[in-house]
Amino acid sequence: MATVSKNTAKRPRSILPGFGLSLGFTVTYLGLVVLIPLTMVFVKTSGLGFAGIWKAVSTDRVLAAFRLTFGLSALAGAINCVCGFLVAWVLVRYRFPGRRFLDAVVDLPFAMPTAVAGIALTALYAPNGWFGQYLTPLGIKVAFAPLGILLALTFIGLPFVVRTIQPVLEDLEPAQEEAAASLGATRGQTFWRVVFPPLIPALITGSTLSFARAIGEYGSVVFIAGNMPGKTEIVPLLIITKLEQYDFAGATALAALMLVISFLLLLITNSLQRWSSRRHSK
């Protein structure tokens, strides 16, 4: 009896059993699968010393690759934010023949090997491809140019936005829109003041996922990028190149820097998302 009361005094009894066990499993699993491998990146890098790291990452070629990767990934995330929203809106709000088929198509970038996407896009947009042959005379270069990389990154990120917004959109009560209308709101006001705000957290989450996915993307980009150093070379490719030259330390230095930047960006967007979902919580 005494021990029981001592236990209950320590922490409140929970109706869910197995907290200790499941937390232990979670920590072990995350450690083995995520944290330890990532730590190795830093361990390997630290062998270089600060000067070595600086030397490895401060070249023009590396900086250009970083600018390209993060810039285009952010742009792809923004494009997907808008277009993914529209796709989700159409899939949720309207009933039309072929809707289920379109809904399934959205998942293809998830399921397909990304290299296949890269090859397909290159075939379409290369100067002699279906689209490329008409774009090239107009002076628009897609394949083997930053525009092509952007296309590939947008392609692989789309499902993230659509799939995070869809359930939230489905949960919206039609009565809220009717209420807005009966209070005299125009369609535009109803959308911006009633429908859109509850979607903001999901929209941020989806775009962030799309952005994060794009930063690490390799397979679909290498085919369409052309990989010209300083122009169309992305960081993941640069890392592979260094590995092929047996420059392991240099490769891990780039990887470590990428990790740090990604982590900081995710931290920012996560707190942004948390802030907005608190504002819009039910």
Partner: peptide, 29 residues
């Protein structure tokens, strides 16, 4: 249409705007 009719409608499940405060809900119209 509803927007021009000036009828006050109260829904069965209230249909309040969950992301707006009580004040903002009432001020909406």
């Amino acid at each position: 249409p509803a927007a021009d009719r000036k009828t006050g409608f109260v829904f069965q499940h209230y249909a309040l705007f969950n992301h707006l405060t009580v004040y903002e809900n009432v001020a909406f119209g």
